[in-house]
Design a protein around this nucleic acid. Structure first.
Lengths: 232, 232
DNA sequence: CGGGGTCTTGACCCTCCTCAAGGAAAGTGG
DNA sequence: CCACTTTCCTTGAGGAGGGTCAAGACCCCG
């Protein structure tokens, strides 16, 4: 794999503090690949052969059961996914597909486990990352069980707004059908939910969202750090 | 804390392989406490001062938002809970209350983090445990998003049956109102769901469940290892 | 034998899904 | 650059799943 990618990968929390030769050992076995959109990288149930790192583009993590499908998360650069399966050497619980043209690094799971065994700093970073992932899923479960779809959408918009540095107007980063699935509803219902948020000063046109009445929306959404803070 | 509890705690995957003096250091700072039923041990949002270990009784992990409440999990002996918050030194995401008279060990979070830093075997065990927790929550999210309430109940019963070594008749281990909340529905709706499973040979009387037609129920429930296997 | 909780049942209603069709974008090939 | 195709988004009508409210049955425990 080309060394030009090393710095940006090294920057990741996961690899930051680890010993240089261990990092190089990981990179030695890794390789980069470019994928077109809509390619299935991973099929849930498969053995977890690689830790994946998204360098560019974006990846959808989704799951299926009984001919139904739901979107679980979207992975954006630069970050890793399916760390837990790699560590436990257990089958993937989610499938993954590219949403756009994407550049992905594949690090053999064995290598990750091997370095994990000998590098305490790396081990520590993995723990932090896993704890983070765990807490994220717990939050998303709370979101699903405690809120109606309208409330979930409202809070989602507030989170996206925070990402956009609090701007009153910002773009949706994923297409609506996928957003609907992520929020646990149908595309039709998402359309109606957007309309339902008119009452709280939310205007949507295409991918453009404008929040004209911040206070109203927040009073309706009641965002909570214990559900909506993705950082802690 | 009385040494008599050491062996059973030491048996836990989390503490199995670690160095003896590290284990003793953890136990030195820990203390056991007996709680009556319905005591709130933890309030979500609080700083995570202790890693908890249930020795006997049972504990409900639940969350609230906007005057709504939902049950997230039930912890039974012998196991730990809220490891992620302890490790990340972040606020608890879930509240905890005893369901019955319970004996709980409290290990100061600082101690856990300190030993984690110096004992690689312990670190490894924590990683495994966290990965396990993460995968459990992912499974439960899939359960929630991909299945109807009737399907969730059917699969829950099959899982409980497995716990009871596959017996055709077994007892529900938690009260129905809590089960309902855990499965993401109301008590009323759970009652109706039990009736709805009559058609697949499920008989319920009080806490007794009898599965008279295993094949029918399984064909309806379509259990999947990627959602219902709590071990992987 | 009360009295508190839980569980069940019924009636009603609201949320959300399904199905179907029309419209808006966006990519494709001439 | 323009028709064509495809995909996505929206809108409407109808219906199923699940929530709410209220009342009664059951059950456990003092």
């Amino acid at each position: 794999m080309p060394k030009s990618h090393f710095p940006e990968i090294r920057e990741l929390d996961l690899f930051q503090g680890m010993q240089e030769d261990h990092f190089l050992a990981l990179m030695r076995g890794a390789y980069v690949q470019n994928f077109p959109p809509q390619i299935e990288l991973i099929n849930e149930g498969d053995p977890s052969d690689f830790l994946h790192i998204v360098l560019s583009g974006s990846v959808d993590l989704f799951s299926t059961w009984n001919r139904r499908e739901t979107s679980m998360a979207t992975v954006r650069p630069i970050s890793t996914f399916i760390l837990a399966a790699t560590i436990k050497d257990a089958p993937y619980l989610m499938s993954a597909r590219t949403l756009e043209k994407s550049r992905i690094v594949l690090v053999p799971s064995e290598d990750v486990r091997a370095v994990f065994d000998i590098d305490p700093v790396f081990a520590q970073a993995i723990v932090t990352e896993l704890a983070q992932c765990y807490r994220s899923v717990v939050k998303s479960t709370k979101d699903l069980k405690l809120r109606t779809s309208l409330e979930r959408l409202a809070n989602y918009l507030l989170r996206q707004q925070t990402r956009a540095d609090g701007a009153a107007e910002f773009d949706l980063l994923i297409e609506k059908r996928r957003l609907a699935s992520f929020l646990g509803m149908t595309p039709e219902n998402l359309s109606r939910a957007f309309k339902g948020l008119h009452a709280y000063g939310v205007m949507v046109e295409g991918i453009k969202v404008r929040i004209s009445n911040q206070r109203d929306l927040e009073r309706f959404a009641k965002p909570s750090p214990l559900i909506d803070d993705y950082s802690t």
